[in-house]
C-alpha cells in the first residue's frame, strides 16, 4: 500500500515538472498570439485575458498588411528557402551516392573537406562571401542567398544521406547493373526513391536554419524588394515599436508558418533527430 502511494506521489511530481516546463515553453508564443487579437486597451489592462467580444480586433493585422510588404517578404522567404532546399537535397544525394558507392582516389579526402563545413560555421567567411557577391553583381538578389544557403546546407546533407545510401543492399544494385541499367538511371530511378524517408529528415534540418536566418539577408540582400520575413519583421518592429497591435500581429504572422508545419511534421522531425531511437 505504502509503496504504491509513494510511487503515485513520485509520478505526479514527474508530471508536475514536465507540465511546468511545457507551459513555460508555450507561454510566450501563446501570450503574443492571444494579445494580437485584442484592442490596445485590453492588451495593457489584462494581458493574460482571452479576447472578449468587446476587446476583439484585427486592426493590428490590417496595419501590418497595409503598412508593410508582408506578402512580399513571405514570398522572398519562400524563394530563398525552397530553392536552396531542393538544390541541397538533389546535389547532396548525388554527392552522397558517389562518395558511398564508388571507390576512387581522394574519396576520404573529399569527406573530410565536407566535414569542415559541418564544424565551421559558414558565417565566418562572410567578409569574402560579400566581396564575392559584389564581384558577381549579385548583391540584393535572391540568387546570392540561394547560393550561400545551398553551400551551407550541403555538408550535413551529404553526411546523413551517405549513412542511408550505404545501407542499401548490394544485391539490389548488382541486379540492376546486370540488367544493363546505367549508373544515372540506377541513382535516379532506384536509389533516390529508396532513400525518401532520409531525404524528408534532411529537408527539415536544412529548411529551419534557412527560413530563420537574419545574418545573410541583412548583409547580402537588405533591399526593400528582397527582404526576407525575418529582416522585414525586424525592420517593421523597429519602425512601429509603439504600435503594439501591429507588433504583436507581425510576430504572430512570422511564427505562424513554422507552427503550422510543426503540427504536420513534428513526429517525423523528432524521429529524425533521435535517429530512430524514439518510436
Amino acid at each position: 500500500m505504502n509503496t504504491i502511494r509513494h510511487s503515485l506521489g513520485k509520478r505526479s511530481l514527474v508530471h508536475l515538472t514536465l507540465v511546468a516546463f511545457t507551459l513555460l515553453a508555450l507561454f510566450p508564443m501563446a501570450l503574443v498570439i492571444v494579445n494580437s487579437f485584442k484592442s490596445r486597451r485590453a492588451i495593457f489592462d489584462a494581458p493574460l485575458a482571452l479576447p472578449t467580444p468587446e476587446s476583439f480586433t484585427i486592426i493590428g493585422y490590417q496595419r501590418v498588411i497595409e503598412q508593410s510588404d508582408f506578402l512580399l517578404f513571405f514570398g522572398n522567404s519562400l524563394i530563398v528557402t525552397l530553392i536552396p532546399l531542393t538544390l541541397v537535397l538533389l546535389f547532396g544525394a548525388m554527392a552522397a551516392w558517389a562518395l558511398s558507392e564508388y571507390r576512387f582516389r581522394g574519396n576520404r579526402l573529399l569527406m573530410l573537406f565536407l566535414a569542415i563545413g559541418i564544424m565551421v560555421p559558414i558565417r565566418l567567411g562572410t567578409v569574402s562571401i560579400l566581396e564575392l557577391m559584389v564581384g558577381l553583381n549579385l548583391i540584393n538578389t535572391h540568387l546570392a542567398l540561394i547560393l550561400v544557403y545551398t553551400a551551407q546546407g550541403l555538408p550535413l546533407a551529404v553526411f546523413i544521406l551517405h549513412e542511408f545510401i550505404s545501407q542499401v543492399p548490394k544485391e539490389l544494385k548488382e541486379a540492376a547493373r546486370c540488367d544493363g541499367v546505367s549508373e544515372y538511371r540506377l541513382f535516379f530511378q532506384i536509389i533516390l526513391p529508396l532513400i525518401r524517408p532520409a531525404i524528408a529528415t534532411v529537408a527539415v534540418f536544412t529548411m529551419v536554419p534557412m527560413w530563420n536566418d537574419l545574418w545573410f539577408p541583412l548583409i547580402l540582400a537588405p533591399s526593400e524588394q528582397t527582404q526576407t520575413i525575418q529582416l522585414g519583421v525586424q525592420q517593421f518592429i523597429g519602425q512601429y515599436a509603439t504600435d503594439w497591435n501591429a507588433v504583436l500581429s507581425a510576430l504572430t504572422l512570422a511564427v505562424l508558418p513554422v507552427l503550422v508545419l510543426y503540427v504536420f511534421f513534428s513526429q517525423h522531425l523528432i524521429r529524425g533527430l533521435t535517429s530512430g531511437a524514439v518510436k
Binding site: F91, F113, G117, L132, T150, L154, V158
Partner: peptide
C-alpha cells in the same frame, strides 16, 4: 554540383 557550390561559396570564402 555539390563540390562546386560548397567549394566556391563556403570553403573558398573561409
Amino acid at each position: 554540383p555539390a563540390l562546386i557550390i560548397y567549394g566556391v561559396f563556403s570553403a573558398y570564402p573561409l
